[in-house]
């Protein structure tokens, strides 16, 4: 229903045209309750700029870091899984008690 992915892909294209490296993150699986549905997307550039969302804010920072690491590495893709938040730790997790998998991939020239 939302038009956001269209805006995201156009932005990814414009970042690439201005010679930036871009990683596309996509929610590929969710278990239990999770704020973003399968297919939700976010793009991240080499400077850490981002657009879109893969959760309600719970794991964005972690995904952004992973995307920036991916740009530095030789790999072109990676699958990241997030599990239930340990409430006693200041770690990344999903406060809603869900689990999710995010696929991150470089846009290759």
């Amino acid at each position: 229903m939302s038009k956001s992915f269209e805006i995201i892909l156009e932005k990814a294209n414009s970042w690439i045209e201005s010679n930036q490296k871009v990683v596309l993150a996509t929610v590929i699986q969710t278990w239990g309750s999770s704020p973003c549905q399968v297919g939700s997307r976010m793009i991240v550039n080499e400077k850490g700029g981002f657009l879109g969302s893969v959760s309600g804010g719970c794991v964005e920072a972690n995904v952004i870091n992973e995307c920036m690491e991916l740009i530095k590495s030789k790999n072109s893709f990676k699958k990241i899984e997030f599990t239930i938040l340990d409430e006693n730790a200041w770690s990344v997790g999903l406060a809603c008690g869900g689990e999710m998998a995010v696929f991150i991939e470089q846009i290759n020239l």
Binding site: E6, L9, E10, A12, N13, I16, L24, E105, Q106, I107, N108, L109
Partner: peptide
């Protein structure tokens, strides 16, 4: 994802 695919998605969406 290859840039060609990204461009094609944008084109197809319209």
């Amino acid at each position: 994802m290859k840039i060609e695919i990204l461009k094609e998605i944008i084109k197809k969406k319209s």
